[in-house]
Design a protein around this nucleic acid. Structure first.
Lengths: 165, 165
DNA sequence: CCTGAATTGTTAGTACGACTAACGTTGGCT
DNA sequence: AGCCAACGTTAGTCGTACTAACAATTCAGG
């Protein structure tokens, strides 16, 4: 057996329509199509980030820091929508890479002030480029107009569902 | 505090664009938009199924049985793309509801033959209706033409990504 | 200024889905 | 006969979303 040189798992299990092998009823389920396609996309993004030693939250946290400036961990958790408990590990990893600095806040000894380093800014740019590549790869079969359309349709659905209650 | 009468968690954490609160870089990531929207959709589907005491695999397995006829557990696992290890629990639940029968195969004592009961057919129709309602709810803001388009775009992306290697 | 309540970072743990490994039983093959 | 493959089942890993509890610190009110 020599079957896993680069795909982690099946990769065909995420195919929505396998012709006669796929029950017709499943082919009508948008939730399934969206779920599978999102899983493919996230796997692609996850793999690409893993290849450079990062993962999703690294990008999210660096982006939040870059755009909103230094923050305490709980402010950061709120902004990046990462649980403060999970943030601890993310910050440890980012600090190990030298991409952020975690310093005690002199004005409030409960707080840490998180700051992006110069290397952190470069790292963010790197991860941004990686993800741009993934997005492009995912949307390869679509024309520019179709890409815009897809983005718009998903955005409307997302806003609609988020507005519920 | 009295804030969780029916939403299991945040529900706002799945919003893609929170205006000024959302870092601009995140607003360019299709993988994020797709992931969040798929999560919303799957949460809606999961909640709706849970409300009638079912979950995703119940539907998938019943659909496969209904369209391909009685099968052994491993055949079913292959067709429904459910791991045979997980299928055990699903079949236990379906059997408890009286929706399937699990009988030993007389011609091969290793096998169980799984059959849908009449109640199982009705159950499938019920779950199908529940999911149709969810799909409709999710796509509320879209016109019929847009719904078709979204389906088509996602289908192309899914096929493209599944064809990789 | 003192005491109780709230906040901060952290550790630990739950819930759940996707996925793998191993095992006893049975069957087909030669 | 003997060996390997397939069957159903149990158990366990891994990753991610999410909650609970806790010590340290700060803050507000009497």
């Amino acid at each position: 057996m020599q079957a896993d040189h680069e795909a982690r798992t099946d990769s065909a299990a995420l195919r929505f329509d396998r012709g006669a092998e796929t029950p017709e009823r499943l082919k009508a389920q948008l939730s399934r199509l969206m779920g599978l396609t999102a899983a493919q996309t996230q796997r692609a993004a996850g793999d690409a980030l893993r290849a450079v030693g990062a993962h999703k939250d690294h990008f999210v946290v660096l982006a939040a820091l870059a755009e909103f400036g230094p923050a305490s961990q709980s402010a950061l958790a709120a902004r990046a929508h990462v649980y403060k408990s999970d943030l601890v590990a993310v910050l440890n990893e980012l600090a190990d890479g030298g991409w952020i600095r975690r310093a005690p806040d002199p004005s409030d000894k409960r707080r840490n002030v998180i700051t992006v380093t110069a290397a952190g800014s470069r790292r963010l740019a790197e991860l941004d480029a990686v993800l741009a590549g993934v997005n492009d790869h995912v949307m390869t079969p679509l024309t520019p107009g179709e890409r815009t359309q897809l983005f718009a349709l998903l955005t409307r659905i997302n806003a609609h569902l988020a507005d519920q209650r």
